[in-house]
Design a protein around this nucleic acid. Structure first.
Lengths: 205, 205
DNA sequence: GCATTAACTGGCCGACCGGTCAATTGCTGT
DNA sequence: ACAGCAATTGACCGGTCGGCCAGTTAATGC
């Protein structure tokens, strides 16, 4: 009657994914209804089912789209051949920090996924941490980092810190005395990197 | 007919709160139904409404019960008069770490509350961090801790690390190379306490 | 003992949930 | 041109949601 009604399934899928992403980020899986997503992306509920098989399938697709880029980038970062040492570690931390800062939606989606016990995330996380830990171990062997700490713990420390900073950002950003993102990163690196220096006074406690 | 049907509103409230706590911890607010809670605590749905005014009211009551003890304990800890310094800071971290280790349900409930943007939590958190930061600042003035880092950031670092460790515990606990709770705490204290020592080489950069 | 109050029950409500299905409509290959 | 297929629609399903209300029953105060 009125509209030309052209069809573009790719665009439709993309619109659904985007709306779903925003809503899931905001409220989590359980608190979002398929109707809500349909309304925001201006498609019918049935169409979502057609493209993604249902609410669960859409949730998985949203997570996959959001995390794929992250995992790929981090993996490339970590397998890139550079000589390990404090600078490499620090650069890794900075890049990780900046990625989270620039992708707050991904951070929150990650948090929701973790809360509901998503296992595929933690498997891939584990691989990334393993790669990072290996780089730390190499640096320890060369005497560039103190050797009396578990390399996996070192990676976990800075990943946890970056993650928690941005997960709780909206809560603590206006606490008295709290600095900006960059100021926090500076302070954290100051303490962390110097705490990781080889111990010249007592090389093997 | 059969049962004596004695009434104990206190116990009833407690049973409801306990069941609700377990379910909310497990699945979060949105994914738990009032019927579920009623069934587990062996009362009727209506009775929950009678005692707590509804699902939302029960959620608030559960959070309050879970967090009250935590906030009180931490506040006492932080206002106790001890001379500030590295040992006090380290003891505070250890006690906080152990509290989270011994109360995994509270950790998860906290995480859910944070995700859905609970503001009363973050207000009280802010007060606690403020108290801790003041102690760090005093230690800095006395030259017991390096003075070129923001005290609020120092506290945030420790809190974030403990929090994130236990929030993500089930995911990373069996990653290759990952140690136990105590081993992680040891390593993390090693790095940060030494990173926080006053800089003798360059006292004021 | 008897009235008042609070604890407690079962049933019901309208709203919304995710999912299904038959039917329509626009593309696409031949 | 037309067959086949995927995209898309709207109506409908059984089930569950949180909440409400009228009634019943146990404690409590006088």
């Amino acid at each position: 009657m009125n509209d030309t009604a052209i069809r573009d399934p790719e665009l439709t899928r993309a619109r659904i994914l985007e709306s779903a992403f925003e809503l899931f980020v905001d409220k989590g899986f359980a608190a979002v209804s398929v109707r809500e997503i349909a309304e925001r992306s201006e498609v019918t509920k049935s169409l979502i089912h057609h493209h993604f098989g249902g609410k669960e399938g859409l949730w998985e697709a949203v997570k996959e789209q959001a995390f794929a880029r992250y995992y790929q980038g981090q993996k490339e970062e970590l397998t890139r051949a550079e000589r390990p040492g404090p600078e490499l570690l620090m650069n890794g931390v900075v890049r990780y920090f900046e990625f989270l800062r620039d992708n707050p939606g991904v951070v929150r989606l990650f948090a929701w996924a973790h809360m509901e016990g998503d296992s595929s995330c933690s498997e891939r996380d584990g691989q990334l941490v393993g790669l990072g830990a290996e780089r730390v171990r190499q640096a320890q062997e060369k005497g560039l980092l103190r050797a009396d700490v578990n390399p996996t713990h070192v990676v976990t420390i800075f990943v946890s810190l970056c993650t928690q900073w941005f997960e709780a950002r909206e809560h603590h950003i206006d606490w008295p005395g709290m600095g900006t993102d960059d100021e926090f990163l500076d302070d954290f690196l100051k303490v962390f990197m110097e705490g990781l220096l080889p111990r010249p006074d007592q090389p093997k406690a």
